[in-house]
């Protein structure tokens, strides 16, 4: 299969348009990179001499740091730009910001932006590789990939698994990347949450809909529990966080009623006691910190492949060979 996989192309803007072969290739390439982070000296020269800009127009801790570790462990030179403290706040347009960076001869841009489509927009306009680190409500492909990798690690497969995404699907780029990636790899996907927080016609994206968390738990092998942002209560989507927890919260009592053990994912940051109770988050079926660990490996794989690295040479690359 590997030899027929079309190359990823210049950019990774989303999982929607990737083939199963392409997604599996990224996951398989991430496997050998996992070990690098376990070494005493966490560095290989794979991307030595490459310049990567982490361009974050929205606040991010986990994703930005994860990308930065991935870049540094592959020996790339990195620069971080966040919107506060950059020329963006002085009114510069996105395309001007990018062109100015281009003029300094960079190789890749990792971008987080508040507007859906911003990654597509940038990718079409600059010759550097663009990696989408989250655009509006659209996609967060590396989060989707690390979720897939984590599920595969623990369940041994993705094909035929039943995965339910719980919470604010409407505003979630994580949800969309999960839906596209999981479905392409043959998983059954459902969503569960108040209808106010589900995208219109979400069924047509190929998702079952569960109104009640109990039904979702009864059905699923895996729950991916999304953060319920305080702003959603302020926006009137749910009457109160307490009520949300009461109706849709993932609690140990509810999980104990499940017919099988469920794998529990959460992309973070968690609101303990809102969408997920602490004893679930810290419990035996939670793989939340495994997700974070896998995030670095998946991002290494994406950077490696976009930089032209050969998937079959990833094992050699991590032993120190330059790509």
């Amino acid at each position: 299969m590997t030899d027929t996989v079309p190359p990823l192309g210049k950019d990774l803007v989303g999982l929607e348009k990737l083939t199963a072969g392409q997604i599996l290739q990224i996951l398989d390439t991430a496997e050998p990179f996992k070990e690098i982070s376990e070494r005493r000296i966490k560095k290989v020269p794979v991307l030595r001499g490459k310049t990567i800009v982490n361009l974050f127009f929205e606040a991010s801790t986990r994703t930005r740091v994860s990308f930065e570790f991935a870049e540094k462990r592959l020996s790339a030179d990195t620069v971080n730009i966040s919107s506060s403290g950059s020329s963006v706040v002085k009114g510069e347009t996105l395309v001007d910001t990018a062109r100015n960076l281009e003029a300094m001869r960079i190789d890749m841009v990792v971008m987080r932006h508040g507007a859906s489509g911003a990654a597509d927009f940038l990718a079409e306009r600059i010759p550097s590789n663009v990696v989408n680190a989250g655009d509006g409500w659209h996609e967060h492909p590396t989060q989707g990939l690390l979720d897939l990798l984590t599920i595969r690690d623990h369940m041994g497969r993705l094909d035929g698994l039943k995965v339910c995404i719980v919470g604010d699907i409407l505003h979630s780029r994580v949800a969309r990347s999960n839906i596209y990636g999981l479905r392409t790899l043959g998983a059954e996907v459902a969503v569960c949450g108040p209808r106010t927080l589900l995208p219109p016609m979400v069924e047509e994206l190929g998702c079952q809909v569960f109104a009640h968390i109990q039904e979702a738990i009864e059905w699923a092998d895996v729950l991916n529990v999304l953060r319920l942002q305080l702003e959603r209560m302020e926006g009137g989507y749910v009457p109160s966080l307490r009520e949300y927890n009461h109706i849709w919260g993932v609690t140990s009592e509810r999980l104990e009623a499940a017919p099988r053990d469920l794998l529990i994912l959460h992309p973070g940051p968690m609101n303990r006691g809102v969408e997920i109770d602490s004893d679930v988050a810290d419990g035996p079926h939670s793989v939340i910190l495994n997700q974070v660990t896998n995030g670095v490996a998946v991002r290494m794989a994406v950077l490696y492949l976009l930089a032209g690295g050969q998937p079959e040479k990833a094992e050699a690359a991590k032993q120190g060979a330059e790509s």
Binding site: E16, S116, G117, D135, G136, W137, H138, E139, R173, R176, P199, P200, M201, V202, E204, L205
Partner: peptide, 11 residues
């Protein structure tokens, strides 16, 4: 509002 807006993540 419809399936395309939902797919693209646009209000």
């Amino acid at each position: 509002e419809g399936v395309i807006s939902s797919r693209l993540g646009l209000g």
